[in-house]
Design a protein around this nucleic acid. Sequence first.
DNA 1: GTCTATACACAGATAGAC
DNA 2: GTCTATCTGTGTATAGAC
Lengths: 207, 207
Amino acid sequence: MGRLANGGITLHPELMSTKDQIITAADILFYAGSIREVSVERIAEKAGVTKKTFYYHFQSKDELVATYLEARLKPTIERYQKWAGLEGALADRIERMFNMLAASAEKQTWKGCGFLRAAVELADSPGHPALAVARRHKAAFEEWLADDIRSAGFADAFSLARMIMVLLDGAVARMLVQKDPSYARDAAKAARLLLESQTARRPVYTD
Amino acid sequence: MGRLANGGITLHPELMSTKDQIITAADILFYAGSIREVSVERIAEKAGVTKKTFYYHFQSKDELVATYLEARLKPTIERYQKWAGLEGALADRIERMFNMLAASAEKQTWKGCGFLRAAVELADSPGHPALAVARRHKAAFEEWLADDIRSAGFADAFSLARMIMVLLDGAVARMLVQKDPSYARDAAKAARLLLESQTARRPVYTD
DNA sequence: GTCTATACACAGATAGAC
DNA sequence: GTCTATCTGTGTATAGAC
């Protein structure tokens, strides 16, 4: 199996604790490569510490993997929320989110969803702590979508949120396999059609 | 990282060539576990041969991985075709396919799509021969869907096929992460809504 | 074509000094 | 809290006999 060269990205030790430096290094290497392929040694090296220091801060590689995903939770959901924005009708906002995803996937550095990739890579270790983090992330994401859809006055927000989650993860999966970002545009179209298929109830302003 | 115990499934050496025994063993272990986690040693052991014999038949593990996916191509697409069946309207056939996928995902042994998982696991090795096989499989699948949709008289079969592919891979991804087979039912519902959103042209019988 | 034995690199994790 | 040095297991792949 192939080996990845060190990306050579420099961190900023003066701004971070040793532990955060390790997490940042792990984030870069795990996302650019893969969890199993990147060794503790390489992470420690990139963080500018030794393995001994690494094992002072983390009990095991598995713990680091879970921490790595944990650190991605908030930034990831906030990125999608920013993509959707607050302007316009729900269908437009969802479409914008998918189109921004497509644009993001066009970048060389795009390697799919870290949570989905972790879940796949660790599919053979059902008890791995990182799997719980991935599930939690996706559940929170779906909840955000459902709240948003409900606020826009749609009747079956729960079901619509689940369908849009399927489209999101599906778009990521298709783009990852086929290396073709346009699948996110198909997903955007599908999301719009699904939203339009529901009767949008206007929110009731009681005042 | 954890280790999987040997599944203990017995093969049928009398019915297969040595090479096929190795491929069958690899199929079982790679799908139940993961590509990177399963060693050549374990595959050889399960196939009842030594490592030397393995390397007589395959140049490398990478070659075996590609061959393993290659062997899954035909059975996989035929399974989905069987699920869809030939009876009923297109929307019913597509819905049946998704519902059968949900039923399949309920089984303990279900671990997602071997092609998608391979693509994710090998995302850090862009030149890996198995990635080309995965792309080829998904492209062939999409083509089958498009042909089927076109035959049913739908105008934009190309676009519909792409959207349904997104729903398929999305359902698999959601089920894999959340361990909740009901996402395939959401995908089924979405597929039906998308098909209904298009004006279904009746096929023209010229005789 | 299949075997036993082994080369060689690298993984995760630890020992003990400072 | 961080270092150098090392233990132990396992990985892919190969040598040479039969």
